[in-house]
Computed example of a mutant assay.
Amino acid sequence: MSIRVAVVGGAGYIGGELLRLLLLHPRVEVAAVTSTRLAGRRIDGSHPNLRGLTDQRFLAPEHLSDYDVAFLAMRHTETMGWLTRHSGLAKLVIDLSADFRLRDPAVFQRYYGLPHDTPGALDSFVYGLPELHRAELRGADRIAVPGCTAAAAILALHPLAAGDLITGRVVVDARTGSSGAGAGAGEQNLHAERSGAMRVFAPVGHRHEAEISQETGRTVTMTATGFEAVRGVQVVCHVALREGVDEMAVRRAYRHHYQDERFVRVVAAKRGNYRFPEPKILSGSNLCDVGFATGTGLGTADAAIAVGALDNLMKGGAGNAVQCMNLRMGWPEELGLTFPGLHPI
């Protein structure tokens, strides 16, 4: 028996990735895909990789009816007002925008530059990272999927933060591919401008640092750089270890938290080309690789780095959303998400 699903805002990169996963999902019927701009046009015109998988056309949002699950892939700051007007759209709402990720409306206003339309609704959403909130997600009717760099950093830092192995401020150095800017990105993301560049586009105050702080309970400073890739996020998180915490304690913490997780792998090898997490080999997968390094090679005996890597459109977006849906529906979390990535690519 399948459930009826709608993708609201299906013309962008995240919408396309959701459709790729949902059209192949064994327990899902894609009942509606909306786009205001492209209403009436074929979906595979915007997502050519879906040719032969669907003959559907984009639907104008005003023609939506009711569904079992609605995935909201709209622009940041648009979802909160839209959802108020369509509160009865679906039994389960999974939002991939930033509008319901933060619990504190004052923090939302600081990072997004405007007051939240429905601050009272923030607490009704569960933060959609199964590795941290699995129990809550099983009963959630509203889920807010994390940002891509936030997910990578939170998963990289979680064993250290949860075990109280670190102290002081966390500094996150993030790198992201061009698809992270979305399908409607401006002049700065033209191939002629971006190709070959390593551009620091958020030297301070990146929006995802608020999510990382919220989920780790640590003060976080984040810098973001665009690098030569279409897909992929890598974060290098600089931390100070508490006195007496050594590499073995760090390794035990990662093993404890992730030994039973289907979509998180600990990658911290002594040698080889892929000693630490690298996004290239994760393209198309729902995996997040995390790793670490400690010791005097970092300048001080009590310093460490935590590294995370993922595909920003998958574990950093659509894949994580489908994982949350599977969990909420009581299905195996890996259903429709078993693709392992490619090598070489």
Results as ranks from 00 to 15, higher is better:
228 E>V: 10
239 V>S: 01
212 I>M: 01
223 T>Q: 15
241 L>I: 10
223 T>P: 01
221 T>P: 02
226 G>I: 02
228 E>F: 10
223 T>D: 00
214 Q>R: 05
231 R>A: 10
219 T>A: 14
227 F>V: 14
214 Q>C: 01
216 T>N: 10
230 V>N: 13
239 V>T: 08
225 T>H: 06
240 A>Y: 10
212 I>N: 00
236 V>K: 10
210 A>R: 02
213 S>C: 01
230 V>K: 12
210 A>Q: 01
209 E>K: 06
226 G>A: 15
214 Q>N: 04
223 T>I: 01
231 R>K: 15
209 E>H: 07
225 T>W: 04
222 M>P: 04
213 S>T: 02
242 R>D: 12
224 A>L: 14
228 E>I: 08
241 L>Y: 09
221 T>W: 10
231 R>C: 08
238 H>D: 13
228 E>L: 11
215 E>F: 02
216 T>E: 02
241 L>N: 08
209 E>Q: 11
212 I>K: 03
233 V>I: 14
218 R>N: 09
216 T>I: 06
226 G>V: 06
240 A>R: 14
229 A>Q: 05
218 R>C: 10
233 V>W: 03
241 L>C: 11
216 T>V: 00
212 I>G: 03
232 G>W: 02
230 V>L: 14
223 T>R: 13
222 M>Q: 10
239 V>W: 00
221 T>R: 14
241 L>E: 08
228 E>W: 12
231 R>M: 10
236 V>T: 15
220 V>H: 05
230 V>Q: 14
211 E>F: 03
223 T>K: 09
211 E>H: 02
237 C>N: 14
209 E>V: 01
231 R>Q: 14
233 V>C: 05
229 A>N: 03
235 V>T: 09
233 V>L: 04
229 A>Y: 06
236 V>S: 03
227 F>Y: 15
229 A>S: 15
209 E>P: 00
238 H>C: 09
242 R>A: 12
237 C>S: 09
229 A>V: 03
222 M>G: 06
212 I>L: 01
217 G>R: 12
234 Q>M: 11
240 A>P: 07
226 G>D: 04
209 E>A: 07
217 G>A: 05
215 E>K: 11
241 L>P: 05
219 T>M: 11
228 E>A: 14
233 V>H: 04
218 R>M: 15
227 F>H: 14
215 E>R: 13
209 E>R: 04
223 T>S: 12
242 R>S: 11
234 Q>L: 12
210 A>D: 00
231 R>L: 09
209 E>I: 00
216 T>R: 08
240 A>T: 15
